[in-house]
Lab assay of single mutants.
Amino acid sequence: KELVLVLYDYQEKSPREVTVKKGDILTLLNSTNKDWWKVEVDDRQGFIPAAYLKKL
């Protein structure tokens, strides 16, 4: 499984997104879309802008 580091706080703006904090380490589920990556946060799955994440 691939992990990503959150570079900036992000507040979800729709039900398909998730809220994260800078410094969080998340499981990356899908990065095929270059703009929005799907991650897992506390048993929730959702999207975050790829620019907010860095692969570890």
Rank of each mutant, 00 (worst) to 15 (best):
G46S: 04
L3V: 08
D24E: 12
V39C: 07
Q45A: 13
K13C: 08
D42Q: 13
D43E: 13
K1R: 12
R16M: 15
E17Y: 05
V20S: 03
V20Q: 01
I25P: 00
L56I: 13
K21C: 08
Y10T: 01
K55H: 09
I25M: 06
Q11V: 13
K22C: 07
S31L: 04
S14Y: 08
E17T: 06
I48A: 14
T32Q: 12
I25Q: 04
E2P: 11
L7D: 01
V41T: 14
T19L: 02
V20Y: 05
T27V: 15
V4S: 02
K38C: 09
V6E: 00
K13V: 08
A51T: 14
Q45W: 09
A50Q: 07
K55P: 13
L29N: 03
K54I: 14
Y52P: 01
L7A: 03
T19A: 04
V20L: 03
V6Q: 00
A51L: 13
K55R: 14
L7E: 03
P15F: 08
D42E: 14
T27A: 11
L7G: 01
Q11I: 14
E12N: 07
K13N: 10
T19H: 05
K21S: 11
N30Y: 06
Q11L: 15
E40M: 12
L7W: 02
V41I: 13
A50G: 05
E12K: 12
L29C: 07
L56C: 09
K1S: 12
I48H: 00
K34Q: 12
D9H: 06
R16K: 14
Y52R: 04
K13Q: 15
K38N: 07
G46Q: 05
L56E: 04
T32H: 13
V41Y: 09
K38D: 03
Q11W: 15
K22I: 05
V20A: 15
D24R: 10
N33A: 09
D24P: 00
V20C: 08
F47M: 08
V39M: 01
I25V: 11
L3D: 04
T32L: 10
K38R: 11
D43L: 11
D42P: 09
Q45R: 10
T32D: 15
L5H: 04
N33D: 15
E12V: 07
V39Q: 00
K1A: 13
V41A: 11
V4F: 05
L5C: 07
V4A: 09
E2C: 10
V41M: 10
V4D: 00
A51E: 13
R44L: 07
Q11C: 11
W36E: 06
L28A: 03
E17Q: 12
S14Q: 08
P15T: 09
S31V: 05
P49C: 04
E17H: 05
K22W: 04
L28K: 01
K22A: 13
S31R: 08
L29T: 06
V18N: 02
P49V: 02
L5M: 13
T19F: 03
I25L: 07
N33Y: 08
T27W: 15
K21R: 12
K54F: 12
K22Y: 05
L7M: 09
G23H: 05
L7Q: 04
L3K: 13
N30K: 07
P15K: 09
S14P: 05
L28G: 00
L29Y: 04
A51G: 14
Y10R: 03
L26Q: 02
G23A: 03
A50L: 02
Y52A: 12
K38M: 14
Y10C: 02
V39H: 00
S31K: 07
L29A: 04
S31Y: 08
T27F: 11
Y10S: 01
N33E: 10
K34M: 11
E40W: 08
R16V: 12
K21T: 10
V39I: 10
Y8S: 11
L5A: 06
N33W: 08
D9T: 05
E12G: 14
V6K: 00
V39T: 02
K38F: 15
I25K: 05
W37N: 01
